[in-house]
Write a protein that binds this DNA or RNA. Structure first.
Lengths: 216, 216
DNA sequence: CCACATGTGGATATCAAATATCCGCTTACC
DNA sequence: GGTAAGCGGATATTTGATATCCACATGTGG
């Protein structure tokens, strides 16, 4: 938590680049409220998904709607700020996995960790599903994740553990599949997606006499 | 508002096979229109999903909205009639598979055929996803499908090809996963779900030294 | 301590989209 | 030909989210 990072965040949220730094500092209480809103956004979007209203967020933060609309012109902007951070963290996980020994295992671990996070975050899942929310930060983080995964897959292929024809392009569909399981009406507080992740990962392993994969 | 309606007249769920006893026969043109509406419903729901309006259906059938609302009190009722038939047909497929020799193969074939149908029918997919539309016909067909699949799985288990711990309860999640892939923004007119069905089915096969499945 | 720029609350106007009704007119049927 | 049955589709109704506005409160610098 450096002062640098906070300043950067504030700029990004206001949609200004650092070059156009004519921005006056916020009044102290206003800055506090800004942070409250971001936190409330994180919690509300995670719990109720992207269709939560800014009114919901405001109420959750203990503030009026007007205040929220003053800091973030619309839901897009808030979502962008909130999920930008969220995706950066996932990109960091992928980065860590990148240079672990057992590439397939590392990939499996990364997927498990990232999906566990998604499991608790309905908004994040919706974000992945339909690319409605765009923004420079999000795109950058997504690209980083993709790059790290490509690297992992290449290494797994070298190690001979990866089924023929599996590529980075398979990861989004796999995430989508796990998401679908998470969205299923849960009867108990269990985590059935872990079961299906195991099944799918086993299907991605190279096996003797295994059928050719149909094209993407 | 209390019941001044003719009882037989209001028998909206006419798709039900048995009960049409007291109903006066429809005028010839009216009966024709009824059929037109069902057909239009099938096509429109398949193409645009359940959120298509009855206005859409009416227009597609070349009829006025009023006519549609006369035959089916609301969208629920029409959807129930349309998808009742649809599900019966899938149940029939499952029934056929039931007594084929190679049980695992038969199950795989059934899934492939049923999913291929779902792939062309957005409404049907939405119906499976969120159990919003209920009705006697639907429930009955669903139960038939479940029963047939249980039978198939039991036999596959006997034959020793089925991974330990796989049950009928896994099929709905698998369908949900394939649905998720189908819902992905398609870049080409390809059928990527087939690829992932292969992967998942391979993960459901018994293999030496394979990990225990996490519970449902 | 004051003046005033900055920030706040939340009632409410606006917008959008689907649903379902109503009733004057048309058509089948006997 | 008379009458009940059926039809069309403009439109009232409902629902819910979004975003604004401005009287009032509060921090800040002098």
């Amino acid at each position: 938590m450096s002062g640098d990072r906070e300043a950067g965040e504030a700029d990004a949220a206001r949609g200004t680049t650092s070059a156009a730094s004519t921005a006056r500092p916020l009044r102290r209480d206003a800055e506090l409220n800004r942070r409250r809103i971001l936190q409330a956004g994180r919690e509300v979007f995670a719990a109720r998904g992207l269709q939560a209203t800014l009114n919901d967020v405001a109420h959750h933060a203990g503030l009026g709607v007007g205040t929220v609309y003053r800091k973030f012109p619309d839901k897009q902007a808030l979502a962008e700020a909130v999920f930008g951070e969220e995706l950066e963290e996932i990109a960091a996980m992928a980065g860590e996995a990148r240079d672990t020994n057992d590439a397939f295992g590392a990939l499996a671990d990364f997927l498990e960790k990232a999906l566990a996070r998604a499991a608790h975050n309905r908004g994040l899942r919706e974000l992945m599903r339909q690319g409605t929310v765009e923004g420079a930060g999000l795109t950058r983080a997504r690209q980083a994740i993709t790059a790290h995964c490509e690297h992992l897959l290449a290494r797994a292929r070298t190690e001979g553990v990866l089924r023929d024809g599996v590529t980075e392009a398979d990861l989004a569909p796999i995430a989508a599949m796990m998401d679908a399981v998470m969205a299923l009406p849960a009867e108990q507080p269990s985590q059935p997606w872990r079961r299906y992740l195991v099944i799918v990962l086993d299907g991605l392993r190279a096996q003797p006499g295994q059928a050719e994969l149909p094209g993407l």
